[in-house]
Every structure is written in structure tokens, then in C-alpha cells.
Design a protein around this nucleic acid. Structure first.
Lengths: 206, 206
DNA sequence: TCAGAATGTTGACACTGAAAACATTCTAGG
DNA sequence: CCTAGAATGTTTTCAGTGTCAACATTCTGA
């Protein structure tokens, strides 16, 4: 059905657009992404994308959703029986995701997307990403190593810190850090978790 | 010299542009700011701004610098003899600045500005803003309440957390928080500081 | 006074997002 | 199998943008 003769119908414009978009934002940043350039990339007219996405904003929303869903799949890279260590590792994974997909991360958390709250799938996938961190916090609480607070409070604190580290890393605010960058990040995340612990000493002698 | 007759020369295009820009980003967001609109606002031709700013990016840089310089003037709103309490208050002031000038804050830390590192005045004013938090951390260290780490490490951790809270607050990621928002923010900041303290108990019974 | 610097303008170019009107192809119901 | 209507695509057009070049006016110091 799909031979190599020039076709009127492209085949799969939506996913071709998304793929081209991911490539372009990786190379040129989300700031200069244009629908017309994407259309050119995949060889359709400049208005063809509008048959599949209401507008540019909606395409950005889909890209962001994909990112959140990836985030939601994160697991601690070095699983640890110690709940608070596992939480640190999840935080690290989160930061590494951001550093590996900086432009997509900026899209997810920046203000490029307009009227974010009008897109339920975006809210939902974003919430799911948060739940990952949250679940590890809960494990820590069940293990009894964290202070007596609402799990949501700790989870939000952890998420916020990790997001701060990720954002600033991406934008090269830590460029002058000397030494192993992974160590630096881990120290920053640990400092956050330290604030949650009944006995911070457990962390210090690690 | 400057009567009310129509003048060929405007008088002070640069500061008029900056003022108009601050107004526009406050009302419509930094994302849709356009030089041409600013030119219209102040009643000059669309290319007049280019006599005073190399390009749009440079105007954004100046706006961001102004923001950083304001940040650098922050003091704890409720000064406390307890060093760690003062640090918390400075963090709060920082967050409140962000919430009062959300679009300017996004401009300062977002990726709207291109080639940030090519603007020494931006790097410098940004560094000065960081120094405020840093100085309060040092006070805490001198008071002996914080753990034994490089001051820079703690300062950066505090800055990162505060930035994370500010960013997410601005973008309404905490919209579902119930109860007093100021209390929520203060709890988040405190949790961060808690991680620095030799005796977190000091904070708990506060 | 008057030349040159500073500041302003008009007009143009190459982009962009988006809508309207129209063309082609696919697909389901008779 | 045929055919109407839905899907998908195209061309054209509009309004908006950043920025440059060429030209006009005004200010300022020697």
C-alpha cells in the first residue's frame, strides 16, 4: 500500500511531526521551534500540521506529555534497601533525565506552553511524574526513617529541590563546579533528604 | 527644552522602552513581548529601539539585570537574632519577589535570553543576587548552628531550593495547596534549612 | 557656523502562526 | 462495486515579528 511513489497522503503526519520536533528542539532549542519548519522537515505543506494539531500549543503539549510519561517510568538506578537511599537515587534519575533532555524538560516546566491547565492529559501525566517521587517518600516513611510530617509535604519538598537542581543544571548555573559533577548533584540531593530524617547521622556516615 | 510640541526626538527612549516592557510583561507575559509593540507604546517608529539596544535580546538582558539587582537588595523581612531563622526569612523574601514579579523572574532564570554568558553585567548581577543568600548562610555557620560543610555547598543548596519553590509557585504548581500559603512556603524553606542544622530540633520547637 | 554624531523614519526582507477556500484520497454504507 | 462524506492535503492570504539598509532630522562641540 505504501510504495515509494510520491503520495498525496503522507502516512503518519502526527508522529512524524513529533519526531521531527524532538530532533529540532534537541538541536536548536524549544525557543526557535516552528511548525513550518517541522512541516518542511517531513515534506508536507505548511498548513498540513493543522489537520492533526489544533495549533502549535497543542503539539507542544503532546511533547511535554511524552516527557512526563517518561519521567513517570523512572526508577532508582541503583536500588537500595535503604529507603532514603532509594529516594536519593530516584532524585538523581530525575535530574539525569532533565540533563539528557534539557529542551524537553524546559518545555515541560517552562512557560512556553500556554494555558497548561486546559489540557487534562498534561495535568495528569505531570501528576503521575510527581507520584514517582512521592511513592519513594512514602516507602521512607513506612521504614520510619523520616520525620513525622504529611507524606505530601516531604514529597513536594523533595520534588521542588530536585526540580531546582535540574533547572539550574540545565541552564548551566553550576558550570563552575569543580570535581565530579555526579558527586555534586548527589550531595545536593542528599542535603535535601537530610532535612527529612529523624537521624541525619545515618546519611553522614554513608 | 522639552515643551509639549511634537518633537522629533523622544527624550529618553531607552528608559521609556524598559518601563513599557516591564508593564507589558507584567500584563501579557514575557513570551509575547515584542519590540514593535514597545515602540508603538512609547510612540516611536518600529526601528527606533535599535538605536539604543543592539537587539531584542539586549533589552531583555537589561530587564533581567534590573531584576537581579533588586534581588541583591533583599533583606530578611523579619530580622531574627537566630541566624538560621534569618536565612529562612531571606529565602521567603526571595520567593515573594518572584511571586510579585513572576514574568521578570521567568525572564531572569528562564531561557528566553539567548547567550546569557556573553553578558558580563548579567553574570555579575546574578552572582550578586546569589551572594545575598550566601552571606546569610555564612552568618549561620559563624553562629555554629550548621553542619560542617563548605559554605558554598549550603548556600547553593539553599538557593536551589528557594529557586525551585519560586519557580513552581509562579507556574501554579502549588495551586491546590490548602491553608495559608505563606505557612506552606515557610515550611518548605524550613525543611531545606533543617537539612543544614546540627540540631534540627531547634527548628521543630519553633 | 557647521560638520559629524546621535537619533529618528520609511521601506524592505525573511520569517512566523493561523485561517479560508479548494483538491485529493480514503472509507463505509448502499 | 459505487459513491457520498470524512480525512487529509494544498495554495493563498493576512497579520504579526526581528532586523537591516538607506535616508532625514536634530543636537553638539570645535
Amino acid at each position: 500500500m505504501s510504495d515509494n511513489k510520491t503520495q498525496y497522503h503522507h502516512g503518519d503526519v502526527p508522529s512524524a511531526l513529533l519526531q521531527a520536533a524532538l530532533l529540532r528542539i534537541k538541536n536548536e532549542g524549544v525557543e526557535k521551534l516552528s511548525l513550518r519548519a517541522l512541516a518542511r522537515d517531513i515534506g508536507v505543506s505548511q498548513t498540513a500540521p493543522y489537520r492533526h494539531f489544533k495549533d502549535k500549543n497543542q503539539l507542544l503539549v503532546v511533547l511535554a506529555c511524552k516527557g512526563f510519561r517518561e519521567l513517570a517510568c523512572l526508577k532508582a538506578q541503583q536500588p537500595s534497601p535503604l529507603a532514603f537511599m532509594a529516594l536519593i537515587e530516584v532524585g538523581m534519575s530525575y535530574i539525569y533525565f532533565a540533563m539528557e533532555h534539557p529542551e524537553q524538560y524546559k518545555l515541560m516546566f517552562g512557560s512556553k506552553i500556554k494555558h497548561r491547565r486546559d489540557y487534562p492529559e498534561l495535568m495528569e501525566s505531570g501528576g503521575a511524574a510527581f507520584q514517582v517521587i512521592s511513592s519513594y517518600v512514602v516507602k521512607g516513611m513506612e521504614a520510619g526513617v523520616f520525620i513525622d510530617k504529611e507524606p505530601e509535604v516531604l514529597a513536594r519538598s523533595c520534588w521542588t529541590t530536585v526540580h531546582g537542581i535540574a533547572s539550574l543544571s540545565i541552564d548551566d548555573y553550576f558550570e563552575h563546579i569543580t570535581g565530579n559533577f555526579d558527586d555534586f548533584l548527589r550531595e545536593q540531593v542528599s542535603l535535601c533528604i537530610r532535612g527529612f530524617m529523624k537521624e541525619p547521622g545515618l546519611l553522614d556516615k554513608q
